[in-house]
Computed example of a mutant assay.
Amino acid sequence: MIRVGLTGGMGAGKSTVATSFADRGAYLIDADKIAREVVAAGTPGLAALVEAFGEDVLGADGELDRPALAAKAFADDESRGKLNAITHPLIGARTNELLQAAPEDAIVVQDIPLLVENHTAPFFHHVVVVNADVETRVHRLVTSRGLDEDDARARIAAQATEEQRRAVADSWLDNSGTADELAAKAIDLWAQRLVPYEVNVRTGVVAEPLPELVADDPNPAALGPRLTNRLWAIVGDKATSVAVTAADPVTLTVTARDAEAAAALPELLSAGGFPADRKGGHGSADPGRPARVVVAIG
């Protein structure tokens, strides 16, 4: 199993990619859908919001009145913190339930609009960013979703920048064209990279890099930091350092806390996308991201 983080700014076309992946068997987890489910009518989540913010956050139908809640919850940092303290644990618990239910051979695609803003990119085997230029996105939000232009621009400005998204992206899908063109790009990514990646992780095989995929890296200069952060997410407190120690291919040395921690790392690294190689280290299971990992003991 691999976990794929799917993200992109408002109006970028993320839903088209999510649908393309789901049509090919992706196990889709939609963060926005979960956020609505955990505060639906009759849930403990909605009851907690009513207790915290008052009965007037309820609509006449018993469902959450989201504009009324927003007016109260985003009034100041304290109120925002109160909202997050209620909803974030519920969203996390439901997400974990869905992850636990995923098949062993699943490609889990987690559709997360604020993946970059929430700093969760390192926890995924692969991050896919869908992008379109600001003017294209504004046009789509105004014509397709009925947003006021100023509102659309303000919402886009409040999200991550293109530079911030490129820093964490493993794949970059440009959506300056039609929905069909974007879907075709998503299908190619699924077949050429994500499916082989999942098979390699599940079977413990280091990928043979494919030059055309490697050349598509959206930000080669950020590969070292990207892999460093990914490895920290995999090894956690079992390591005292993770450092880039060579460039071609990118090689990182993970210094284990002690011998016991070092013994646990091979299994963690393999599940995280870096199975054992024939040289006594570990290699990337992603055919578009060649890398080696060496374990040392501190």
Rank of each mutant, 00 (worst) to 15 (best):
D111W: 05
P113A: 05
P113T: 03
L114C: 08
L114A: 03
E117W: 04
N118W: 11
N118Q: 12
N118L: 15
H119Q: 03
T120Y: 09
T120Q: 14
T120F: 03
A121T: 03
F124K: 02
H125Y: 09
H126N: 13
H126T: 14
V129A: 11
V129S: 10
V129Q: 12
V130F: 10
N131R: 05
A132N: 06
A132G: 02
V134F: 08
E135H: 07
H139R: 14
R140I: 10
R140K: 02
S144M: 03
S144F: 00
G146I: 00
A152M: 13
A154L: 09
A154F: 02
R155N: 12
I156E: 15
I156C: 14
A157H: 08
A157M: 07
A157P: 15
A157F: 04
A158I: 15
Q159H: 08
A160F: 10
A160M: 12
A160C: 13
T161P: 10
E162T: 11
E162N: 11
E162S: 13
Q164T: 08
Q164R: 10
R166A: 13
A169Y: 03
A169M: 08
A169W: 03
D170V: 01
D170W: 04
S171W: 01
S171F: 01
W172V: 05
W172R: 00
L173D: 06
G177I: 00
T178I: 10
A179G: 07
A179H: 12
D180Y: 00
L182I: 11
A184V: 01
A184G: 06
K185W: 01
L189Q: 00
W190H: 03
W190F: 02
A191Q: 05
A191G: 05
Q192A: 15
L194Y: 05
P196Y: 10
Y197H: 07
Y197A: 11
Y197L: 08
N200P: 02
N200L: 07
N200Q: 06
R202K: 13
E208N: 06
E208I: 03
L210G: 06
L210D: 14
E212H: 10
E212Y: 04
E212L: 08
D216F: 00
D217G: 10
N219M: 04
P220G: 09
L223P: 02
G224V: 01
P225G: 10
T228L: 12
N229G: 15
R230Y: 07
R230N: 07
W232M: 11
A233S: 13
I234P: 11
I234R: 01
V235S: 08
K238N: 15
K238D: 15
A239N: 10
S241T: 09
